[in-house]
C-alpha cells in the first residue's frame, strides 16, 4: 500500500516535470555564426533560444571542433549555418559526433543560408593551386542586406515547418522584421550614395556581396590566393600597383591579422579599416550594418 502510494506520487511528479518542461520548451537553435543567431532571434523571438558557435573575433574557416560545441549540437533542434564550405573544417565532425538525428544534412533541422541565395564567385575550374576556394561559390553572403532578407524569409518558413504550432507568430515576426529591414535598406541606400564607386583593396575575398551592394570596386586582394597569408613579394607588387592607380580604402576583417593591411596603409597613406564581418555581442543586425556603413563612410573620405 505504502509503496504503491510512493510510486504514484513519483509518477505524478515525473508527469509534472515533463509537463512543465514541455511548457517552457523552446526551439534550440545552433548558429554557426553570430549573424544567423541574431537573425534567428529576430524571427523566433521568445519561441527560440539561440547559441552562436563563433564570435566576431573568430575566423569561421578555422574553428576547433571543441567538446562544448558537440554538446550544444547534441541538443539542437535547428542548425543555422552559412554553408557553401565555410564550416567544412569543423561542422561535419561536430555533426557526426553529436548523434543528433534532427540536424543531420537533409533533415528539417539543417538550414544552410547559402542554399537559399545565388552565390557569386562560383569557380569555373576547381583546383587547389588556386588556394582555398569554395566549390559552391563565395559563402560570405551576410553583408548583403538583400540576400539577408531572402534568407530571413526562408528561415522563417523553416521555423514554421519545425514548430507548426507557432507558425502564426513566426509569420508575424517575419513581416515585422521585413518592414523594419526594408526601411533600413532605404535609409542605407541614401547613406551609401557617396561611397559608391570607391576603389578598395581587401584582405580576403570575403566582401564580394558588400561590394556588389555598395557598388565598390575591388582593385586587389592582400592574400595572393584565398586562404594564403599575404607574403612580402605579393605586397610589394601590390604597392607598385597602388601607386599607379588610386585606391580609396583597404578593408580587412576584424578577425584577421592587421599586419599586411597596416603595412600597405603606412606605405601609401590609404586608410586601412577593420570591418566586423558579423554582429558583435548584444548588437542587432541593424546596428551592425549601420556600423559597417559608417566605418566605410568615415574612412573613405
Amino acid at each position: 500500500m505504502n509503496t504503491k502510494k510512493i510510486l504514484f506520487i513519483f509518477i505524478f511528479l515525473i508527469l509534472i516535470v515533463i509537463h512543465t518542461a514541455e511548457a517552457v520548451a523552446k526551439i534550440n537553435i545552433f548558429a554557426c555564426e553570430p549573424e544567423w543567431a541574431e537573425l534567428s532571434k529576430e524571427l523566433g523571438g521568445s519561441l527560440v533560444s539561440t547559441f552562436s558557435a563563433t564570435n566576431v573575433g573568430q575566423d569561421p574557416h578555422y574553428i576547433q571542433a571543441r567538446p562544448s560545441l558537440i554538446a550544444k549540437i547534441r541538443k539542437a533542434d535547428l542548425l543555422v549555418c552559412t554553408g557553401a564550405g565555410l564550416e567544412t573544417g569543423w561542422l561535419p565532425v561536430l555533426l557526426r559526433k553529436s548523434g543528433n538525428s534532427k540536424v543531420q544534412p537533409g533533415q528539417k533541422g539543417f538550414f544552410m543560408a547559402t542554399d537559399t541565395v545565388k552565390l557569386l564567385d562560383k569557380p569555373t575550374v576547381l583546383d587547389r593551386s588556386m588556394g582555398d576556394i569554395h566549390a559552391a561559390g563565395n559563402p560570405h553572403i551576410q553583408l548583403d542586406p538583400r540576400r539577408m532578407r531572402i534568407v530571413a524569409k526562408k528561415l522563417s518558413q523553416r521555423l514554421q515547418q519545425i514548430d507548426p504550432e507557432h507558425s502564426k507568430e513566426y509569420a508575424e515576426n517575419l513581416a515585422n522584421f521585413k518592414t523594419r529591414w526594408d526601411q533600413a535598406i532605404k535609409r542605407w541606400k541614401e547613406e551609401i550614395r557617396d561611397i559608391q564607386g570607391k576603389n578598395i583593396i581587401v584582405q580576403h575575398n570575403s566582401w564580394v556581396y558588400l561590394q556588389q551592394w555598395l557598388k565598390l570596386n575591388k582593385v586587389a586582394e592582400l592574400e595572393p590566393k584565398p586562404g594564403v597569408p599575404p607574403g612580402s613579394s605579393h605586397l610589394s607588387a601590390l604597392l607598385k600597383r597602388v601607386k599607379k592607380s588610386p585606391v580609396d580604402l583597404i578593408i580587412y576583417s576584424s578577425y584577421q591579422d592587421p599586419k599586411a593591411a597596416t603595412w600597405l596603409s603606412e606605405k601609401t597613406g590609404i586608410k586601412a579599416v577593420a570591418i566586423p564581418s558579423t554582429v558583435n555581442e548584444n548588437e542587432s543586425l541593424f546596428q551592425w550594418m549601420d556600423h559597417v556603413i559608417q566605418l566605410i563612410k568615415d574612412n573613405s573620405k
Binding site: 542554399d115 541565395v117 545565388k118 552565390l119 566549390a135 548583403d144 538583400r146 540576400r147 531572402i150
Partner: peptide
Amino acid sequence: AEEAELASDDNQQTIAKNSF
C-alpha cells in the same frame, strides 16, 4: 525580381550537394 535575381533555385542546390 530581386529574389529571382538573388535567390537560388532549388535544382541547382541538389546538384551542388551531390558533387561531393
